[in-house]
Amino acid sequence: MLRRLRGRAVAMKTIAALLTQAEQIARARGTEQPAAEHLVLAALQLPDGTAAGALERLGSSAADFGAALDAQEVEDLERIGVRPDDDRISAELPPPGEPVGIYRSDPSAQELFQAAGDDARREGGALVGAHVLRAAADLEHGPTARALRRLGIDRTELRSAATAEIEARAGG
């Protein structure tokens, strides 16, 4: 009973860390509500290290994913002739400030979070970062899918790498 409660407390802490971080990442980029890709970036920063570990199994990293997201966005804008001076815009953004803790997010993040949580619950284990990545492997479209494609990461391979991280953690 105590062990179960403790497990639940850890899960709550992970969820709070994940959502708070996603909000901070989105705000630092000037986006009001976190989207799926911000949730993935937040998962990659979780102290459990499983999401970052899954990418490393595929010869990539959390930093690579962030860079791919940015590069993809630049390319998607360039394709329509838009070349903003992003450094100048970013210089005028207010600091992200303290997390509000209301955990608002856009539908893409909500769906991804829901899928990751359902996935963890089905296994009866605590939610870890790799669950978010495993759920993200199911995304066929959108910035997350495009960034992964840009990195040459196959979605099936990502799913396997995330599973390996989850199993390694459950076993250890």
């Binding site: 000037g30 993809q72 804008l77 838009v82 815009i89 005028e92 953004l93 959108g142 910035p143």
Partner: peptide, 23 residues
């Protein structure tokens, strides 16, 4: 696919520019 990606990138850019300008 390409058109949607550009739309999303424009929205993100618009959000960023709007917030910076309001600031």
């Amino acid at each position: 696919e390409a058109a949607f990606a550009s739309v999303v990138a424009l929205r993100r850019l618009a959000d960023r520019l709007e917030l910076a300008a309001v600031n």
